[in-house]
């Protein structure tokens, strides 16, 4: 496989994980515009653990996921008090806090960034991406996913039928933060160099875009969105300077025609029947 395609595939795998981190939180009705912050936390912790502490990458990723998950839970509690646009703004603020912390964190290079990580293979990235995707799809068939849908739809009614909305919403924040940290750790070891600017607001927007484009009501939407978001700008290269404008126009068209994104449950069911017929 050429370097070019390997690079694109790796980008897709990492973006898929980042998009899933948004998807998990969005499933409970919470929009996070700060997941790049969790990615940054994961990237820096994982890199420190492999470079400075000499831990194997897989162990480092698990530790980073746990730490970021705990931070996610801590962020999830105040987030309970906010809804919609206010929550989006607050999480955006969280992402910026993380980025400026990293800028001032001299021990890990500050604005100079950090390097010394060993490069990882595309296969390793996709092992993580597919594992997490399959895990999320399994959970979608579990009782807790019904609870998540109930809480997203009508939190008050969910509480009155016995569901603990606090546990579900905060738990989703923790899980989303953990998955974002894995994406960040893989990003760091794919590019073997990180700087705070890698984890800016634009990255958070990319993650949300992937979910919205691909389909925000099914986990496989994150996969479709990640593929589109990485490949489309490549295909549009012939447009030179105009390709991002064309990409933007495509995005608007998509939202106008199919607000739920490319994939949804109805389409998947249709495709499933078609493939068996």
């Amino acid at each position: 496989m050429s370097m070019y395609y390997a690079g694109i595939l790796s980008d897709i795998g990492i973006l898929l994980l980042g998009a899933l981190s948004v998807y998990i939180i969005l499933a409970t009705g919470q929009l996070s515009l700060g997941n790049a912050g969790f990615m940054g936390i994961g990237a820096y912790i994982t890199s420190w653990l492999t470079v400075e502490a000499g831990l194997p990458i897989t162990v480092a990723l698990v530790i980073a996921a746990l730490v970021s998950g705990a931070i996610g839970v801590a962020v999830g509690f105040p987030a309970l008090r906010l809804k919609g646009i206010y929550l989006a703004m607050a999480t955006l603020g969280f992402g910026e806090v993380v980025r400026s912390f990293l800028l001032n964190f001299a021990a890990m290079g500050g604005p100079e960034g950090f390097h010394g990580m060993h490069h990882i293979s595309t296969g390793y990235i996709w092992t993580w991406a597919v594992s997490v995707l399959v895990l999320v799809m399994l959970i979608e068939a579990s009782p807790i996913w019904l609870e998540i849908r109930a809480v997203r739809d009508d939190e008050t009614a969910a509480g009155l039928v016995g569901l603990n909305a606090t546990e579900i919403k905060v738990g989703a924040f923790g899980c989303g933060a953990a998955v974002a940290a894995i994406a960040g750790g893989l990003f760091a070891h794919h590019h073997v160099y990180i700087e705070p600017g890698n984890f800016s607001f634009e990255r958070s927007v990319d993650l949300v875009l992937a979910v919205i484009l691909g389909g925000s009501t099914v986990a496989s939407g994150a996969l479709a969105g990640a593929v589109m978001l990485v490949i489309l700008p490549e295909y549009l290269r012939f447009l030179a300077e105009w390709r991002f404008a064309a990409f933007g126009a495509l995005l608007i068209a998509m939202l106008l025609v199919r607000r739920q994104g490319l994939l949804d449950r109805a389409l998947l069911r249709f495709a499933w029947r078609g493939s068996r017929a």
Partner: peptide, 16 residues
């Protein structure tokens, strides 16, 4: 009435 949108009758009986 406060049913959960998109949920089937069957799913309502599981979720509670």
């Amino acid at each position: 009435i406060r049913l959960f949108s998109d949920m089937t009758v069957w799913e309502h009986l599981l979720v509670a």
